[in-house]
Design a binder for these strands. Structure first.
Lengths: 280, 280
DNA sequence: CTTGACTCTCCAGTGGGTGGAGACCCCATG
DNA sequence: CATGGGGTCTCCACCCACTGGAGAGTCAAG
């Protein structure tokens, strides 16, 4: 058309023209060429210049469409290079559909959380002091015992169990924990389990007066918060957790667990993690 | 508690214990520490060991919550470090809300496209030969002319315009284009505009018999496809495009544009890009 | 031949980590 | 007090899909 005198030379474009034709940036074209996804029709062995043919424009479009459907460049390469059949392609797209669906769901939930947080800020004028996080806590194995005591007996029980475990020669592998088996807190009769995590628990003997046995706190999905301050103020943490449960429309799925990250002798009071399992 | 003889030493955890407490991987804790997001309570200057205090557990939870709301680590750092007020935080969250909303929208549309493609594959048993892509095509400036000719006059018109433009000494900056101004194709009277893109267009003179003037193809959002094969088969491309418009529930927003990437003398026929603007 | 636009290769950086290599440290036991 | 095993350190590379820059070479018009 533009001269060429009848010699049959394929119509090729340099990378810049091709970029203008396809609206794909030059650097990206080079990147695709290096990855082998869009191999130039001809590469000058002297200069390294890449030349693309007009027939490659629809290939670029196919590539863009596949990318737009959410395929990674590796998958795109497999599709355009290996010419994989409609079955594999269908399978791949079904996977993508599931994956994108999941992502939509996730983002929607994230959006809900952001909106809840915004409402909270509007109402309270700032971030709350204690955050509530969902965690998949794994099971904890250790030594301890379960007993029903009144409110005043809680402190002594810790000392008792701790002393008993030490007497057994076991080495704590983490901070002490307690499980409160009563759904309601009754100051007169607290059904609680105190345990010290240990790596390889040797078995039973008696300390001050209670029997030390192997105990397990089961794995759970739990709403978790951390309370800073003396034990009488732990109720705030439970209030916040229960408010969260009612706000989320979820139910409590098991007994509360407290983890005593720091003892009561610290300046500023102890640090206590409170876990409330989420119902199935 | 564990001895310590009454000396006031803060309860600190090594990175592994802290990781177990917070369920954040050790490597990630180190990463956050390096970024200055979660600075250890104490770093041993001799060994470099990082020690975290129990008071930092709620800080980690706050961090996780913020990250979960979609903030980047940089933003999280700004929030936890600079203690920025509720106003900035609110603003940031509002931005996030908009951003996440956009992303939900996008992913939803992507999901729709994947499902449409899956339906297509089920029906046709494979990928279509020609893909349709949405592109923001920018305006093209050049030399050419508009005329109404019959079907047989299209070819000569190209030769005429091309010759005229060459005679002006202008250098084409891209492949020839044509705009078809009739909504319907009437073989007896085709209202078409032929133009050759040029960088700095010099103005008017006459070639074989038509006046060459400066022309512009406006920028547009267009559905684009590329057709391989002789011109009489271009109807397939238009059919595919119109099917796409009706499937997408969109309307055509302007005259069709054809870009002649390759001339008719190529083996295998010419390569032609067809653009149909999308209505506002 | 010069000039300016274009292209080449190579390297670095993005974000939010993950994994490994090789060296050092801590602690409990013998 | 030596030793062993597990924990921790730093540094580097890798993931994805690009994007930007430096410095050198190339192409085409005047």
């Amino acid at each position: 058309m533009l001269g060429d005198g009848g010699r049959k030379r394929a119509v090729v474009f340099r990378i810049g023209e091709f970029s203008r034709l396809t609206l794909v940036p030059v650097t990206t074209l080079r990147y695709y060429a290096d990855l082998g996804i869009l191999v130039p029709a001809y590469v000058d062995p002297e200069t390294g210049y890449r030349y693309f043919s007009a027939e490659q424009v629809p290939l670029v479009n196919r590539l863009l469409v596949l990318k737009d459907l959410g395929l990674s460049l590796g998958e795109v390469k497999a599709v355009v290079a290996d010419e994989l059949g409609p079955d594999e392609l269908r399978g791949m797209l079904r996977l993508k559909r599931a994956e994108i669906g999941r992502r939509v769901e996730e983002e929607q939930q994230r959006l809900d959380r952001v909106e809840a947080r915004l409402r909270l800020i509007e109402k309270e004028g700032g971030m709350p002091g204690q955050e509530i996080v969902i965690k998949q806590v794994q099971a904890v194995r250790g030594l301890g015992c379960r007993d029903t005591v009144d409110q005043m007996g809680i402190g002594p029980m810790f000392g008792d169990v701790l002393g008993g475990v030490m007497m057994q020669g076991a080495t704590p592998s983490g901070p002490p924990m307690a499980v409160y088996h009563d759904p309601e807190f009754d100051p007169a009769a607290v059904d609680m389990e105190v345990l010290i995590p240990t790596a390889a628990p040797p078995s039973g003997a008696t300390p001050g007066g209670r029997e030390i046995v192997e105990c397990v706190v089961p794995a759970a999905e739990a709403a978790v918060t951390v309370h800073l301050g003396p034990y009488p103020t732990l109720g705030e943490a439970y209030q916040a957790l229960l408010a969260w449960f009612s706000e989320q429309g979820r139910t409590v799925g098991g007994p509360a667990v407290e983890v005593y990250l720091t003892g009561p002798d610290e300046p500023g009071g102890p640090v206590t993690e409170v876990r409330l399992p989420i119902g199935a």
